[in-house]
Design a protein around this nucleic acid. Structure first.
Lengths: 244, 244
DNA sequence: GCCCTTGTGTATCTTAAGTTACAGAGCTGG
DNA sequence: CCAGCTCTGTAACTTAAGATACACAAGGGC
């Protein structure tokens, strides 16, 4: 477990540095009340290397993490070596799975791994509960995050249950290019397979099709967007709208 | 929209009748504090006929419902007429999807339908938020419910992504028989298909297999448990443990 | 009883998805 | 520049899942 912990906690009462750190949390800080700030000021900044396993099948965690920098992937593994990504946690989001633990020590059998070097504010369990009691804004923030996850996972379920894999790949690509503002995506086919819960060969095959349709262009470990509109068209399939 | 509303709210200050109603909520009432009781006493008892659509794609709701009697199914539909059940809400559980609305008016595109005649305590939005602020026990109860849903939906995802349909059917049957204490299940094959996000023919086929393996016995609109152990064995497949 | 609806059984066919098994391409470090 | 990775492409094959298309069975209402 190779994580690096720094002990500097933001100076009491001076929330400017915190505000800077939490620039990606408009939904939280804009409405933050004094209780919320008080809690945030007890948080400690932690850093993790890329690929650190943040938690696995049955790991206890004593903190709630607000991601400041980088992203983490939350996923499940099958015994045959396949994986599905449930969602990822990026700046502006808190790590909901911790909540399970935090609420009443129930463990939640999923994996989470830093995808990039990660920085997060770790809020101790007690402070978390205190803030939840006292800060309306924090409470709403937490609930909002949770319900967003729920609705995201519901979409995942309908995708798996109803949509053909090529549509799912196309939709997923769309989302990635949206996030990257059409910059090339730096992932191997295998990693994409792990996103979607399928196999490398299927992904290769489908990406090749998409290249033939001139939606994208393939390179080793990289995918270039060629035509957003045809890609969207493919993703919509026979008239579906699971793009969101 | 054929729902029947009754206006009798439980007598103020007398929590005995409430306790009776909430017999299925040990997790809530055992630890309930005075704030929690105060909120509960503002709730109104509502009744719905079986098959009432409680909410659909983009319906606003102004209450949080605690289910007292009966159950509701929360599901998604595909445009081809297929369905997947996301989860069901039974006595002891609150209707989390309302939460989305309650938190900040975000709509949550799912369907929910009463499966049986339904009774529920409707807590007005304002009271819900007040109780959330003031009652630790209620807060924990809400969070616990949410995280339970999350973990349930994560299981659903792994099932859809990794498991063969016959395993999923077998596991699902196990769960039903557990719930019914081995009493026959009164569902049509089509309804089961809608549970699992597949088609009637597949379910028929797989159930027949299970009958041949002497796990169950089929009748019109009904399934009898024949051997719990072989059923469990089938559900475990080649050594999987997605039973929980 | 008879009709009609609803539910079931099943055979056949089609297609999506996954598997196996390689070949070869591109990068990297000695 | 060669060895040995990792990543990609692809063909051939297998299997799960879904679609189609009926036949028939059970039950309810008249």
């Amino acid at each position: 477990m190779n994580f690096v912990t720094s002990d500097r906690s933001p100076a009491q009462g001076n929330y400017d540095s915190l505000k800077l750190l939490l620039a990606d949390y408009p939904g939280l800080i804009e409405t933050a009340d004094s209780y919320c700030w008080k809690m945030l000021s007890t948080a400690k900044l932690h850093s993790f290397d890329a690929n650190t396993v943040l938690f696995h099948e049955s790991m206890e965690c004593k903190h709630l993490m607000l991601i400041i920098e980088g992203s983490a992937r939350v996923y499940k593994e099958s015994d045959e070596g396949r994986e599905v990504t449930l969602y990822r946690v990026a700046p502006g989001q808190l790590c909901v799975h911790n909540l399970n633990n935090l609420v009443d020590g129930l463990s939640y059998p999923v994996m989470a791994q830093a995808e990039t070097p990660l920085q997060g504010l770790a809020i101790p369990r007690v402070e978390f509960h205190k803030a939840l009691a006292e800060s309306t804004s924090f409470r709403n923030y937490v609930l909002r995050t949770l319900t967003e996850r729920l609705s995201h996972m519901a979409d995942l379920i309908t995708g798996l249950a109803f949509d053909r894999l090529d549509l799912r790949v196309a939709c997923w690509l769309m989302q990635q290019f949206d996030r990257s503002r059409s910059q090339p995506i730096e992932l191997t086919h295998n990693e994409i397979a792990h996103e979607l819960g399928t196999t490398r060969e299927m992904v290769s095959r489908i990406l090749k099709e998409l290249e033939h349709k001139r939606c994208i262009q393939l390179a080793r470990g990289r995918i270039y967007l060629q035509c957003k509109y045809t890609l969207r068209l493919v993703g919509e399939g026979k008239g579906k709208q699971r793009l969101k």
